[in-house]
Design a protein around this nucleic acid. Sequence first.
DNA 1: CAGTGGTCTAGACCACGAG
DNA 2: TCGTGGTCTAGACCACTGA
Lengths: 249, 249
Amino acid sequence: MDNEKVIIDKGSILPLYHQLKVHIESNIESGRWSPGTLIPSERELGETGNISRMTVRQAINELVNEGKLYSVRGKGTFVSRPKIEQGLSTLTSFSQDMRKRGMRPGAKMIEAFTHEAGEKIAKELDISVEDKVYDMYRLRLADDEPMALERSMIPMDLVPGIEKESMEDRSLYEILYRKYGLEFHEAKQTIQAVLLHAKEAEMLRVPMDSPAMMTERVSYLNSGRTFEYVRSYYRADRYQYSIYLNQAE
Amino acid sequence: MDNEKVIIDKGSILPLYHQLKVHIESNIESGRWSPGTLIPSERELGETGNISRMTVRQAINELVNEGKLYSVRGKGTFVSRPKIEQGLSTLTSFSQDMRKRGMRPGAKMIEAFTHEAGEKIAKELDISVEDKVYDMYRLRLADDEPMALERSMIPMDLVPGIEKESMEDRSLYEILYRKYGLEFHEAKQTIQAVLLHAKEAEMLRVPMDSPAMMTERVSYLNSGRTFEYVRSYYRADRYQYSIYLNQAE
DNA sequence: CAGTGGTCTAGACCACGAG
DNA sequence: TCGTGGTCTAGACCACTGA
């Protein structure tokens, strides 16, 4: 018997609608509310949690937008059928990606310094040729074994003082979020197959001319400003890229 | 002088928030509010249109969700920079893909026959090991030059009589749609970097051990049934994969 | 400090679905 | 007819930004 007496804690720092949202999500994930289930009405959820209907609606709206629920006027709100795994084409950091694959992410700094953008980088980052960029070159590890070489460039004005941060074994994105409040929500990425040159192959501890996947990514902040340019080389023997495709329209 | 006297018509059948949404969108699309512009505050929009702030928020919320606006607490709401091209991660056929890249697609049949699925294919297509599949192996051309090797397998019961169709230089998906009414809307794909063996390299007219991108795709019908399994080898010197990424959540 | 967006309330009327 | 979600109001307090 799982008693769900207290759904909403008005003393919490978390918004009430967020608490309700989490509560609904847990009912879905646990299977208590299976796909197709009619969930309690908005008025009922409001009474149960002792919150107003508009607040309930905010929680439900977000879940509808995320595709977890769908509403039918005059009938009610239902749990959606599960899609094929979500998020295969979502934006993730190396660290998140490796954790999802069940491996422990790590990083070894190769070099990090600040320099003028130059023509190619200026174009990618949509800044002036003379603008400074923070340039960080790291060997990325998965379970302590080399997995990829990753070179990130960020306009220096977005991350003043970043050169004083320690990046060894830390997620760049976590630092960017926590220290600079930077969050992006979209990126454009290209992927190609290449052969590794001697130096790169050595760092990745594979034979020269081994195949690799080269990815180039340009990320954008919510404001639309270009935020980073990253070029990575992934060992083909350890890495494969997965993606979920939707039919347009 | 563009007088915007009447923004909201309370007599309209259209919801007030929808009218305001359209009004904001037209200001963005016309360029009156360019990217980065601070738009009027929620309270101000409410007064101007003589509607409540909650209604204004509904309009703005939807536009924020669509990525056209972004809000910053304590500062205001701003027009987003225009998005990167959409649909880079949508499901396309080889033919569509090549046309989008400005090249003329083509195909040369290598072999096509029917056989029992076997263990691996049965698993990918979610059918029985003894079920028949249609197996088609083609060289794909772009502007008459080899671009990829493509091997498609489809459960035979979905496409009876397909062996009588001519597939040379024709889009498989077009035939499937026109003759069998088959349409899919989602797929799962993996991508890896590989080296080409002698035989494949020869067909693609590149040196042996050239790099290539191998993709594996499993497509699903609207009903959820697995529909095809495709393995392709793309010449790395001619092909690069582009994808648009969204931040989850 | 004033102004902004973020959250929340306690009502209200409507259109729609089903019995 | 009753219950549902869809829309809307007129307030309120909060946390945050910037002067």
